[in-house]
């Protein structure tokens, strides 16, 4: 058979394309693998949520208390970069008029002025960050609603940071390791340069039957964590007996962090 160079190139091209089908064949060739199961001692819920009682925090907590922040950042090896520009934070405080922008008036701000409000990822029921992520590197766990980060998959496009209306996401602009000022928690990984991170509602602690580190660290019990699907849970009881606020409810994201003021 006569074949021109052109035809030869065409056929090689098609063959090269065919090679890309190999992974598909691999999937079908897989055998039964041993099973992976949930930790038996794990705390389970269908709809995790947090209630932040700011009143308790201010009235019973000591001035300038940062127990929840320190506990979280130590447990998760969160670095302290030391610049506002590259700041990485999972839980932090800001003023009322910043956490609830547009809700302030000149009279209530006077009462709330200078008061720290705790902010963290809201683990929204309709999370925009999950909607925009092009690789499902951030995703909502179907079983309990935690908005998780898959650091192995994140390509660092930062679309989620543009999507999040709560400023809950931080990007690792540089290698974070040299900036971990707390003692390294050897049981939890660090992050690397180029990925986005945020609060994970302590998914790794829930799996071991522990409450989130911030909840555990708060000595005055201002932070409560529980399952909204369970009518007897501590969060449901608090929501039933108190007036609570959520951040930017008009955006339809359905935040799962509630505030008692």
């Amino acid at each position: 058979m006569e074949t021109s160079r052109r035809n030869f190139l065409k056929i090689s091209g098609v063959c090269a394309l065919g090679l890309t089908a190999l992974p598909v064949a691999d999937v079908f060739g897989e055998s039964d693998l041993p099973k992976a199961i949930k930790n038996p001692q794990a705390l389970t819920g269908q709809h995790w949520a947090m209630v932040v009682d700011m009143k308790k925090c201010w009235e019973k907590g000591k001035e300038g208390c940062k127990d929840c922040i320190l506990a979280c950042h130590a447990v998760h090896n969160v670095p302290d970069i030391g610049s506002i520009k590259e700041e990485i934070k999972w839980i932090w405080t800001n003023h009322y008029e910043n956490v609830f922008p547009g809700q302030e008036n000149e009279y209530n701000v006077k009462n709330l002025e200078g008061r720290p409000f705790i902010a963290l990822c809201n683990h929204c029921t309709n999370p925009p960050c999950v909607r925009v992520c092009p690789t499902q590197a951030t995703f909502k766990r179907p079983e309990d609603g935690i908005v998780m980060m898959d650091f192995h998959r994140c390509i660092g496009c930062r679309y989620c940071m543009a999507g999040c209306p709560y400023g809950a996401r931080s990007f690792n602009w540089r290698d974070p390791r040299p900036f971990i000022k707390t003692e390294l928690n050897m049981r939890f990984p660090t992050r690397e340069r180029g990925v986005v991170e945020k609060c994970n509602f302590c998914a790794e602690r829930l799996a071991e039957g522990l409450l989130p580190a911030c909840v555990e660290a708060c000595k005055v019990g201002a932070l409560s964590f529980g399952d909204l699907a369970d009518p007897n849970s501590v969060v449901r009881k608090l929501l039933a007996s108190h007036f609570t606020m959520r951040r930017k409810p008009e955006l339809g994201t359905q935040p799962n962090v509630y505030y008692i003021v």
Binding site: A36, I37, K38, P189, A207
Partner: peptide, 28 residues
């Protein structure tokens, strides 16, 4: 596989062929 099960599926216990269970964690 461990990575996928732990991070994405929320399953953290591995059941080996002999029935022994392990916490799926490279680091730990």
């Amino acid at each position: 596989d461990w990575r996928t099960w732990v991070v994405r599926d929320g399953l953290r216990t591995y059941v080996a062929a002999d029935g022994k269970t392990y916490n799926m964690s490279l680091q730990n």
